[in-house]
Design a protein around this nucleic acid. Structure first.
Lengths: 328, 328
DNA sequence: CTGAAAGCGCTTACAG
DNA sequence: CTGAAAGCGCTTACAG
């Protein structure tokens, strides 16, 4: 910019005015400055600009896995809202590792993002308190913040599962299994709670052997499923805790002799094309992301007030697998 | 930092030394500075730091759609490589709009990203020449750069399609249709070329009515497919140009009376669980992203030399749909 | 309409 | 071992 000013024979401030299209510069001066800009290939450094301005016009998004079919549309929705507000988006995957989540969040804060959208991997976000106190707007999405109160956009996980389990009960099932993700994940535990509540509401017992919480690794899902189907009190139906597990469960059941009813949490592409179609409790990941991002920008636009909590609800999509009657 | 220095009663440079863990500061001084840092809740501003340092330790990724099941794993792979190099990642979706691609790319450059990974939507990247001349390392991935020479990581699209079409020919098909994406997309045209080459190699004619290039919107795919299946020379097999189209084609064929053979470009989850399983030419999006990112960081580490072009190859996965014999 | 000075928050190059 | 000055590339607040 200094070079441009020198070449155009004007002051720094005048170059700044031209670059920012501020009013009050003569046509001839503009032309002279513009010529110098073109000749020198000058490109304004927005980082320097924003250092002076205070805001960076960027937000950070931390989620579990950018490649996950659930989080990918959420990211895209956040991106669209950020774009509408002329903000750039940093993204990072925590890989379900709380240390990595913190590392990413603090790295974004060190770059002075204006805001943060976080799908927590950690269950303790007190490390964020100084940042939030310093003015970094933060919205938690999909899972609640740990040990602090903050804006949150969540799905009613327990409610969704209750609906799914009640659906299986309505189709005559009494021995219903629950196959979920690791218990330290908030949504996994909430979904388990919904299962227990629905079973209790139907006055049905829950055998320990019908419940399994753990990694979504196919090997584990396979063996746990086989155990539930082979025991002395085999399940005739399953509620499955997320899309990763559903996919594996469907693979296992495809090779199993008897039909087993199944309802999964989270919709997925082609669920309607399988035979039977897979019944699911669907949430809308894009809506989750969009809602969180809008809330974030309302905060950045100055909306004060206590932490806001939005709860979205899932809904049942019946496609066949959840309507299979009990076989024994 | 000024406040910390004042409170600790030291110079600015000493605070800088402590924050950066540079050698040559007394234990007692460190303790005093650290106490001031804690008391004031000081957090270093990396943007300011990097302004002075020259590099921003961030890269930008522009692709078609962050939510697309093909690009999501590519993004994640880029992210992992960036992380290994202690870089932060900006992401943005061009939505197949060349103006939006340019806007994103230039916004990233204005923030002075060190490097750029671009899945082009545009066919003219001359707008990037000043940026590249100014030192922004750039790698194009999945599709080539337009009107400039640059580092590229591509898939051998034509070769993949030749393999797929030859597979259909080997199973006895002579009337094979091609249903592809819009012709201005480089990969779409390359795949069409592979189709024509394979048909020619098998000495088979190609009817105009067997080829359709256009938007992946389900309505269009459906009507074009119905046309190909209903004409006077109906196709008995289809090569389908990408995963978006494949999904719709599978839906349409599921309701069609006669079995139609199908091979699609790009693998997708659950392709093996459909009946029949869907045969595809699979590429590895994560490998594409990883390769591009590694090349980018080699450039950033100083690797000189002319533009480098890497071509990865796809491979056929036979699952049933591509092995259906002709029915008439 | 235009520009010189000070400052955003840090680091570099130097001197003590 | 420590710090004052200058500078990264811009904008703000003023003065003319």
């Amino acid at each position: 910019m200094k070079d441009v000013a020198a070449r155009a024979g004007v002051g720094l401030k005048t170059v700044s005015r031209v670059v920012n299209e501020e009013a009050g510069v003569t046509e001839t001066t503009i032309a002279r400055v513009q010529a110098a800009i073109d000749a020198l290939g000058f490109r304004r450094n927005d980082s320097a600009r924003l250092l002076r301005k205070g805001r960076t016009a960027s937000i950070g998004l931390v989620l579990e896995d950018l490649a996950d079919p659930f989080y990918a549309p959420l990211s895209r929705a956040v991106e669209e809202v950020a774009r509408a507000h002329a903000n750039l988006l940093f993204t990072g995957s925590s890989a379900e590792d709380s240390a990595r989540e913190q590392e990413l969040v603090l790295a974004f804060c060190a770059r002075r993002v204006d805001g943060l959208i976080v799908v927590p991997a950690s269950d303790d976000h007190r490390y964020l308190e100084p940042e939030m106190a310093a003015g970094v707007a933060t919205v938690f999405v999909d899972r609640p913040a740990g040990q602090i109160t903050a804006d949150e956009v969540l799905t009613d996980n327990a409610g969704g599962v209750r609906e799914g389990v009640a659906h299986l009960v309505a189709h005559g099932h009494r021995r219903i299994g629950f196959l979920g993700d690791r218990p330290h994940i908030h949504t996994a535990t909430e979904r388990l709670r919904g299962y227990r509540e629905a079973m209790a509401a139907a006055a049905l017992p829950v055998h320990d052997s019908w419940v399994s919480m753990g990694p979504t690794a196919p090997d584990r899902v396979r063996s746990e499923l086989e155990r539930m189907l082979a025991g002395p009190e085999p399940v005739t139906a399953l509620f499955v805790g997320n899309n990763r597990i559903t996919v594996t469960a469907v693979r296992v059941l495809a090779r199993y002799g008897r039909p087993v009813a199944l309802v999964g949490f989270d919709d997925f592409e082609l669920a309607d094309l399988l035979r039977p179609g897979i019944s699911v409790i669907a949430q809308d990941p894009a809506l989750l992301g969009r809602t969180a991002a809008r809330l974030l920008f309302r905060r950045l636009d100055g909306a004060a007030g206590p932490p806001h909590r939005v709860e979205l609800s899932g809904h049942l999509i019946a496609r066949g697998s959840g309507e299979i009657p009990p076989t024994h």
